[in-house]
């Protein structure tokens, strides 16, 4: 990251004044209630980013909002095909989120509850281990990042990910602009003019909104969820003992997906 908080504010402020792209940086100067909870840990300097999803607080509306916010932010198209599906964050039921925990007598609210799944940004990510070109790798702040410029499309990472978090561009995503049916499904695609689309033949996935963190903003899903219910999704630095995520983890019983595989996921669920 290279910049400390003070330096970042200086740069962001300068960029803001000069109108040089750092549009969103201004948000840092007028923190809402949400950002206030992050006061102690600037979003630009985490050591180990993590997310806690409170399953009691999220509902269909929030989930829909999160998914939409993410996919609009990152120009993720709906390709109307299970085979070629691309998703960064999505809804899943309990049985399929935690297949090894499921049993037939599980309580109704859990059984019918909805979970929000995304890349776990594992501390020990098998996807990065297997990538032959380091097109996917772990940043110093723990984010498992994708470099779409470098990916050769071998899909080894998809085989290696135990969480099904990765999607492949089986075709050119921009065909959405030509196909009438897809056009209708994706009004305004590409929805975010400031973010690239992808090209055919590369893998993509959630990046914990690295581009937003760099500007001092929370991930799009966290922001979207919190406009409906406070702390439904909590995002922060696990490495910081006083951080919001650490506090939430201290006070609630949480589970992670497939911890027995030793990948050490950084997305937690309060159930």
């Amino acid at each position: 990251m290279g910049l400390d908080r003070r330096e970042f504010l200086k740069v962001a402020g300068l960029a803001g004044l000069l109108g040089l792209g750092g549009k969103a940086a201004i948000d840092m100067f007028a923190p809402g209630e949400l950002e206030a909870s992050m006061e102690t840990i600037p979003l630009t300097e985490g050591k180990r980013w993590a997310m806690v999803i409170d399953v009691h607080k999220i509902d269909e509306t929030i989930i829909k909002k999160c998914v939409e916010a993410c996919h609009r932010e990152h120009n993720v198209p709906d390709l109307a095909s299970k085979k070629e599906e691309i998703k960064w964050i999505w809804k899943e039921d309990y049985e399929h989120s935690f297949p090894e925990r499921h049993h037939e007598y599980v309580g109704e609210d859990v059984e019918h509850g909805s979970f929000l799944l995304l890349c776990n940004h594992c501390s020990n990510p098998p996807c990065c281990r297997v990538c032959p070109t380091k097109a996917t790798w772990q940043r110093e702040d723990g984010i498992v990042m994708m470099d779409q410029h470098r990916c050769i499309g071998c899909r080894f990472c998809m085989a290696a990910c135990p969480f099904g978090a990765r999607s492949f561009n089986w075709g050119d995503p921009r065909r959405v602009l030509e196909d009438e049916k897809l056009k209708e499904l994706n009004p305004g695609y590409p929805t975010n003019q400031d973010y690239p689309t992808r090209s055919k033949g590369v893998v993509e996935k959630c990046t914990f909104c690295a581009e937003r963190l760099a500007k001092g903003q929370l991930p799009a899903c966290v922001e979207a969820a919190n406009t409906v219910k406070k702390d439904a999704l909590v995002f922060g630095d696990l490495d910081e003992p006083d951080s919001n995520v650490r506090a939430v983890l201290r006070n609630h019983y949480t589970i992670r997906r497939k911890p027995e595989l030793g990948t050490n996921p950084n997305v937690f669920y309060i159930v």
């Binding site: 070109t133 050769i152 071998c154 033949g201």
Partner: peptide, 25 residues
């Protein structure tokens, strides 16, 4: 392997940016 790659023109990335922990390498 070649016909399976999503992005053949970048194939040489395996040698330009080798990752020794990758079995494919």
């Amino acid at each position: 392997v070649i016909v399976d790659l999503g992005n053949l023109p970048r194939m040489l990335n395996i040698m330009i940016y080798p990752n020794p922990t990758s079995i494919l390498f």
